[in-house]
Structures are given as structure tokens and as C-alpha cells.
Design a protein around this nucleic acid. Structure first.
Lengths: 332, 332
DNA sequence: TTGAAAGCGCTAACAA
DNA sequence: TTGTTAGCGCTTTCAA
């Protein structure tokens, strides 16, 4: 391809050396202003674009971040990706998205892949059992910063950005208490996840600290069909719950499906509150669902800025948090 | 980083030349089996990983595909991405995902970016007005194949993979006719999109060919709030439609919101049918919605295999199609 | 203020 | 069957 513009071409055209051209383009203080001017003008005219591979080869520094997520067909992850994408591009980075389907083996391959590709940094939402923690650590040792988000290892030897999970669950629990409910059915995701543990603990705490708190039943599942069945079963009891708390959007959709199939009215016959990653699902229903928002986008922004710091300088491990807040619908 | 294994190190350890090592690793016929053996064993032991940047620099061939989409928070695109991701990795490719928010200017930047990054190929779902067609073409001239998908330019000078749009709309229209409905409210997306035009034309054709077809009202919009308002208005008329056809999932969610707010029963008081990119939204509702599936995943698989052919050899432009089919719920 | 030269890790033509 | 060499496009040290 002789139509590709390189530094060499520019320098030949200008009768200067390649290194001078290179330095002129990056505004090196050694270079005379007149030279800089000349080089810049020609480069612009010719639409010169530096070859990223050459840069990466000689600096051994890439401008690509890896991003490991369980799935991409999920509003939470996509809004996180959105954020990292947008902010990352501003900072000159690109994104490679790897999906695990929550399979530790696939995750292991992805980690190796990122290492091989010499990514500039890695964002990861880990599979539930954290079995690849050592592999992740090995990246850190190769100088590739790793930022864990949302589902993070249970260790302080790493960088994490999470929701203030206690807060989200606490807010939801307090909202329920205010309404003087009698019996709450709370569905949480898998108990092995640290996010579930934290939320559950905080949620329970609010109930325990309050002497006339509603009765509380807890179930764990994050699969649409399971959720639907559990909730249907519970709602058909004579002593049925008057309130359903959903820890995730998936749980909410399962719950609402069950409620619709039983033709129960919200909130009269059963009240609903959820923790949600976006306004999308809560607003889908009528009446709109009251929810505690935990925005994937905000989390992404925080993750990216943390990454940028880690890439630039050596910083000690950090645990960072994003706050959440209550959005009132008419379902509680 | 002295702990990075390179071909040089391997060859030194083995007292052979770099090129011999290189060739041994790629099973070059010239190399003695014993040598190959030695090199491979050592490489494996040391966990040698070739530096992709060096490869790309010397072969001027990257293993990265660009993928331009309007948004990533959308099940259709994510399932398309899913497919390209999965199949692409099998073929040794990675993906860089660029999002336009349907802004032609952002799209133009993305295209330039891909050119600069020397991607191996580009998948693109264009912004509604096709204003960057020339830019896309310029990639083609630089030897970077472009595969347009879903929303494609109205030109035969390019590779396209699409749904057989006529088919999807035809199937939906025929399903409606079978039910002897009286009045259909059909909501289509923006009329400027070729996909809308094709679907609308096919949909109308079925109605026109049938003498006792229901009355047909058509509106265009793809914005949640608009949809909701239009449908509410129509449903509150005395002479209200008994059937709603939705061209997209977004339209479906808007329609269902309106129906719920008016507390109408599906399908008795109003029947619903939609074209959907996944089973997710149709199954969210009770009763489940009858839909014509146009799977993003299948489209992605087709797009990727087309791309692989284009990368390998010079092939003439192709227009390819994926079929769709009816999934019966209880909403019609 | 500029240039020459080495080197990043790999490929591939040519020589031996 | 193997080694030598040049080169991909850029950065950067050292010398001029």
C-alpha cells in the first residue's frame, strides 16, 4: 500500500530526519517552532495517522483495555460498557469485550488472552466462585492493572469498584418499613456472591433493629423461571406476603410475571420494590415500580477513572463505592 | 520486562536462529521434525505467546474487527455482537465495538478510527440517513471489507446482511388476517429507514390482496413515550382498533404500557402481535405475546461468515438474508 | 536544534 | 534444513 502515509514519507518530503518529524508531531521542546509548523501542516494535509502497532511495539504499551463480563445481553453490563467506552475513548483507549457466560474456564481463557494481547488494563466482573483469582493476579504482576467491578473477589489485594451494596439494600428495607407492611417476601440472587451477602446482611439488619418489622421470608435464585415459580407458590398461600422485594431486575421481571399470571393488583394486593440497574424495567410496568437505582453507567465512569490512575502511576489497592438512591413509583 | 518470552529468547536457549524458531512454531515444511519438536516443547514450557503487535506490524494484518452499532443497550445489537464475538474468536479475531448513538458525526469518527487502527474488517449498522457512505467506501478501497447489517445503505455497491424484511412483515400480516380482525393499528419505526419501508410495503401488500382485510391505520415512531401516547389515544376512541401490530420490541413495550394503563385485556379487548429480536420481551408479558422472530444472533453468524470470506479472497458484493418465523403466544 | 542508529518482536526473501 | 538479513513504523538514546 504505497498510499499509506508514514513518518518516513513525511520526513523525506520535508528533507528532515524521521526522528525530527516524530518529535515535531509530539511537540517536543527541542524542536524549532518553524520545523514543528512545517511538519504539522504536511501531516495534516496528508492525513497522516500513526500506525498504532508500531507505537505499541516500540513502547510496549497498548491503548486497549480488556473488559470481562458474564454477559452482554444485560442492561447493567451494557450501561457499564457504555460508560467505559465513552470515557475511555476520550482518554484515547479502546475496548475489547470478552464474555464468560459465568464459565470459569472461559474466564481463564479470556484472562490469558488479555495477557497475550498486552492490554493496557483489564476490567473484570468475575464468575461466581472466584476460581481464577491467581490468574488475575498474574496480570497485575506483569504490570497490567486489573479493576474488578460489581462482582469482585473477596480479597483486599485488588482494586474494586462496587455499589455501596449495604446502602442500596438498607434504603429498600427502610422504604418497606415506612409502609407498615406485614409480611415481606425477599428474593436475593445466589448466596455465594459477595454482593448478595452484603445486601442480605444490610437488609436483615434493618428488619432486626426494628421491633415491629414485618415478617421476612428469604429465597435465593436469579433465574427467571425459578423466580416465577417461587413467587407464584408463595402468593397462592393463604398467609401470603403483602410485599415483594427483588434484589435484581431479573428477579423483578420474574416477580411481575408471576403477579400478572395470578392477576393480583399492585400495590393493593401485593406491593413491589426492587433494586434496579436502570430505569428501564421499573418503568415498563403499570404502576411503575418503586426502585433503588444502582447505575451501571456511574460505576463504569468510576471504574475507568480508577483505571486511568492505575495505568499512570503505581497506586495502592483501592476499594471504591458508588452510591444509590430511591426512585418512587406507585408500587409500594 | 525480562520475564516476557520472545522468539529470540527461545532461539538463544536452543542455539538456533530466530527464523528457525519462528518457522518451527508455524509448522513450516522446511524444518526438521526433531527441531520442531524441541522448539514446540520449550515454547510450551515457557508459555510463549507471540507478540500480536509485532505480527501485525510485519504482516500489516490485524486480527481485530470493528463493529459499529447505534447502541449497545439493546437486545438486538447485543445478540448480534454475541454472535460475532463467539464466532469471531473461533476464527482468531477480536472485536472492537463502537457506538454511534445514531449521530452521523460520531459515526464518521468511528469509521476514521477503524481505518487508523487498520482493522481487518468492519461491521456496520448505519445511522438513518446514510450520510457517511463515501467514508465507508474509502475503507473498502484500502482493502478493509465492510459488511453492513440490519440498517444498510440503499446501494448495491456493498455487502449487506439483513433479515428478509418482507417475510417478517408478511408473516405477521397473514397471522392477523387469519384471525378475522376488524381494525388494525400498526406502528412502524421511522419511515426513512429502508427496513421500515420494506416491512411496511410487504405488510400493506397482504392487506391489499385480501378483499375482506381489516381496516388498517399506520403510524410511525420508535420512541417509547410517543408510542404510548399514540396508542392510548387510539384505544380511547369509540371506534378503537382490536389489534395492534408492533414493528419493534420498543414499540411493543410502549404498546403494552398503554394497554396496561388503560387496563385492557389481551387478547379479548385488544390483540397484539410484534416483530421481535429475541424472545425476551414477548415472554415478559401475560399472556405471552405472539411474535415474528428476527434473531440478531443468526444475523451475526451470517455476517461473520461473510466477513471471513471477504477477508480471505476478493468476492463480488453480496446481499444476504436471514429468515424469520412466527412464534405463537396467546396475544392474538 | 537536529540526525544517526539501535531496537521493539516478528516475517520472509535470499543465501548457504 | 537452517541462518542471515532487511524491513514493518515508530521511539528514544546518544552524538553532532
Amino acid at each position: 500500500m504505497s498510499d499509506v502515509i508514514t513518518l518516513k514519507k513525511i520526513s523525506q518530503l520535508l528533507n528532515i530526519s524521521i526522528s525530527t518529524a516524530s518529535r515535531a508531531l509530539k511537540d517536543h521542546p527541542d524542536i524549532a517552532d518553524t520545523t514543528k509548523q512545517k511538519v504539522r501542516e504536511l501531516a495534516e494535509m496528508l492525513e497522516y495517522e500513526p500506525n498504532p502497532f508500531a507505537i505499541q511495539l516500540s513502547t510496549s504499551h497498548s491503548n486497549i483495555f480488556g473488559l470481562i463480563v458474564p454477559e452482554v445481553s444485560n442492561l447493567f453490563y451494557t450501561s457499564f460498557i457504555d460508560a467505559v467506552e465513552n470515557e475511555g475513548r476520550k482518554a484515547g483507549y479502546m475496548l475489547i469485550i470478552l464474555k464468560t457466560d459465568d464459565d470459569p474456564e472461559i474466564e481463564a481463557n479470556h484472562i490469558k488472552y488479555c495477557k497475550k494481547q498486552r492490554v493496557a488494563g483489564l476490567f473484570a466482573c468475575i464468575t461466581p466462585n472466584a476460581s481464577n483469582f491467581d490468574l488475575f493476579q498474574s496480570l497485575g504482576k506483569s504490570g497490567i492493572p486489573v479493576i474488578f467491578f460489581d462482582r469482585v473477589p473477596d480479597s483486599s489485594n485488588c482494586n474494586t469498584v462496587c455499589f455501596a451494596d449495604e446502602t442500596a439494600a438498607t434504603i429498600a428495607a427502610e422504604a418497606i418499613l415506612k409502609k407498615n407492611k406485614k409480611k415481606v417476601l425477599a428474593i436475593f440472587a445466589e448466596p455465594s456472591l459477595s454482593i448478595t451477602q452484603k445486601r442480605l446482611k444490610a437488609f436483615r439488619k434493618v428488619f432486626q433493629q426494628n421491633t415491629n418489622a414485618p415478617k421476612l421470608d428469604i429465597y435465593h435464585t436469579n433465574h427467571y423461571e425459578n423466580i416465577k415459580e417461587i413467587i407464584k407458590q408463595q402468593l397462592e398461600n393463604k398467609d401470603r406476603p403483602d410485599t415483594i422485594f427483588c434484589m435484581t431486575d431479573v428477579i423483578l421481571t420474574g416477580a411481575m410475571k408471576a403477579i400478572h399470571e395470578l392477576k393480583l393488583r399492585v400495590p393493593d394486593e401485593v406491593a413491589v420494590i426492587t433494586i434496579s440497574n436502570s430505569d428501564f424495567f421499573p418503568k415498563l410496568y403499570t404502576p411503575e415500580i418503586t426502585y433503588v437505582e444502582t447505575s451501571g453507567y456511574k460505576l463504569g465512569v468510576l471504574a475507568l477513572s480508577t483505571m486511568i490512575t492505575c495505568v499512570k502511576e503505581d497506586v495502592p489497592y483501592q476499594e471504591l463505592y458508588v452510591d444509590s438512591y430511591l426512585v418512587e413509583g406507585q408500587s409500594l
